[in-house]
């Protein structure tokens, strides 16, 4: 059991999950995160996932694909994923590489990402169950 360090921590904050990627990602770590997130969404009945990639100095096609997969999988599990904090140089490079992250919601930082999630969840509840209070 020496793989305790081989996991990116996932924090539960109310109805959301929060992930801050602070290590240089290798492929098995990315796959483990994808598995862990989908498991935790179901376990905690989470409505949103916020992934902070501000410490990532590059996003290659493998990490890009993982982010896209997490967004798709969470959608199927009734949760929204927002990726926040992408560095400008990373965005430029990803587009030239050919990665568009289509289908992945983004926000500039954690704070804005949380308000996107709160807005989406509030809107959903309002639309589904309640009359508008405004």
């Amino acid at each position: 059991m020496d793989n305790i360090m081989d996991r990116i921590p996932i924090l539960k904050m109310g109805q959301f999950l929060l992930v801050t990627i602070q290590v240089d990602m290798y492929d098995r770590l990315a796959m483990a995160l994808q598995d862990d997130l989908t498991t935790k969404i179901v376990e905690h009945n989470s409505k949103g996932v916020l992934i902070d990639i501000s410490s990532l100095e590059m996003v290659d096609s493998f990490i890009g694909r993982m982010l896209g997969s997490v967004a798709s999988m969470s959608r199927m599990l009734d949760a929204v994923t927002v990726v926040v904090g992408m560095q400008p140089a990373v965005a430029i490079t990803m587009v030239e590489l050919g990665l568009s992250l289509s289908g992945v919601r983004t926000a500039l930082n954690v704070e804005q990402g949380m308000s996107v999630l709160n807005g989406l969840v509030a809107h959903e509840v309002e639309g589904a169950d309640y009359d508008s209070e405004e």
């Binding site: 590059m58 430029i92 490079t93």
Partner: peptide
């Protein structure tokens, strides 16, 4: 930006 480009290309090719 150039650092990020060559490092990203490196990651792809090393993989």
């Amino acid at each position: 930006v150039d650092q990020t480009k060559i490092v990203t290309a490196t990651s792809e090719l090393a993989r």
